[in-house]
């Protein structure tokens, strides 16, 4: 590893940490300054006067603002997001249960999206303005313009109600008991307890949400791959490769695609944000109990600690993914690797 790349990673890390601190302050401003009555929203709508007094003391809400901020930062960095007034559990515990379920869906959907997106984008770029290009462009225009809940309904109707191939919703068959919490990864827990019935039901129930998430997100990758391929194909080195006698398929799918991937890497954190938002409503349609369920339940039941804890963890994930993609970016592109950009 050259010093160029080390310096690059260090600057990106510093920038990420600054953003995390900013996120802390932003949520603090929201919860302690903008909220009309902080103690009231932390305690939940049905809290009694004594409960509110207890909350005020626990969150140091009667102290000067800088003391509040101090305790707030300490709490957030120890992942202490308080107690959920609705679930009656620590918020960090809730996030640990529900977030990984959604992350699994998102990770799989992201992987498929990237593959479909790169392939369809390259396919369209090679056939610029021809029939194949038109089909791909219409497909991503439609998936981009359709609200995620409608996409979910469409696949639910198609694969579940109409074809009857897949269950219409739930995390797994409701008659099966969810295996006890040992690791945050649900399928791993099922394996640990040898609960194969639950595992297979869980897998089958996860297919529709993954399909819906893939459908709403692949267009982002298709679009950027297509336009970046079109730019790359005009460059001189593509002509050099052709003139060298390299097979056309290799020129397109190796030289051109690789060079077009650089902008694709930069939209991966955007893709993640998009999938998080999509999962909120898609899980609602499929009654899938993941992060979307946690957030919407918190929303419907005035559970403020859960809401703030959730969005803080989501923002952390986005910042982390941004950092990782920046690093990956550096390894793909030798120009950054050498510290020249």
């Amino acid at each position: 590893m050259s010093s160029g790349i080390a310096r690059y990673i260090a600057t990106r890390a510093v920038a990420s940490i600054i953003t995390v601190l900013g996120a802390v302050i932003l949520t603090f401003v929201l919860t302690h300054l903008l909220a009309p009555n902080p103690a009231h929203i932390w305690a939940g709508p049905h809290a009694s006067a004594s409960e509110i007094a207890a909350i005020t003391k626990e969150y140091h809400l009667n102290q000067p603002i800088q003391i509040q901020l101090y305790y707030y930062i300490i709490d957030l960095f120890t992942f202490n997001f308080g107690m959920s007034p609705f679930f009656k559990q620590p918020v960090s515990q809730l996030i640990l249960v529900y977030y990984p379920r959604t992350l699994i869906l998102i990770a799989i959907a992201m992987f498929i999206s990237i593959i479909i997106g790169i392939y369809s984008g390259a396919f369209a770029a090679v056939r610029q303005d021809k029939f194949g290009d038109g089909i791909v462009r219409v497909a991503y225009l439609l998936t981009w313009s359709t609200p995620p809940f409608l996409v979910a309904l469409f696949f639910q109707y198609l694969f579940s109600y109409y074809a009857g191939w897949l269950p219409s919703g739930q995390l797994a068959d409701p008659s099966l008991k969810v295996p006890p919490f040992v690791t945050p990864i649900l399928p791993l827990n099922a394996i640990i307890f040898g609960d194969w019935g639950f595992l297979s039901s869980y897998i089958v129930h996860s297919i529709l949400p993954v399909i819906a998430l893939t459908a709403i997100s692949f267009g982002i990758i298709t679009r950027i791959t297509r336009s970046s391929m079109l730019e790359t194909m005009k460059l001189d080195f593509i002509r050099t490769q052709i003139m060298k006698g390299t097979k056309m398929s290799k020129v397109v799918y190796s030289n051109a695609v690789k060079n077009s991937l650089i902008p694709v890497v930069t939209v991966i954190s955007l893709l993640f944000s998009f999938l998080i938002v999509g999962s909120l409503v898609i899980e609602e349609v499929f009654s899938y109990t993941g992060m979307g369920y946690l957030v919407t339940q918190a929303l419907y039941n005035y559970d403020y600690p859960t809401l703030i804890g959730s969005i803080f963890v989501i923002a952390l994930s986005v910042i982390l993914i941004n950092f990782v993609t920046d690093v990956v970016y550096a390894f793909i592109d030798p120009r950054i690797r050498m510290g020249e950009r």
Binding site: G22, L30, V318
Partner: peptide, 24 residues
């Protein structure tokens, strides 16, 4: 730009949701 990046770190809809939830 740091402030801009900070806002971009939150998925737009999620942040909007929480802001609206907080202010009413």
């Amino acid at each position: 730009m740091r402030v801009t990046d900070l806002f971009l770190a939150f998925p737009a809809l999620v942040l909007a949701m929480v802001i609206e939830y907080t202010i009413g």
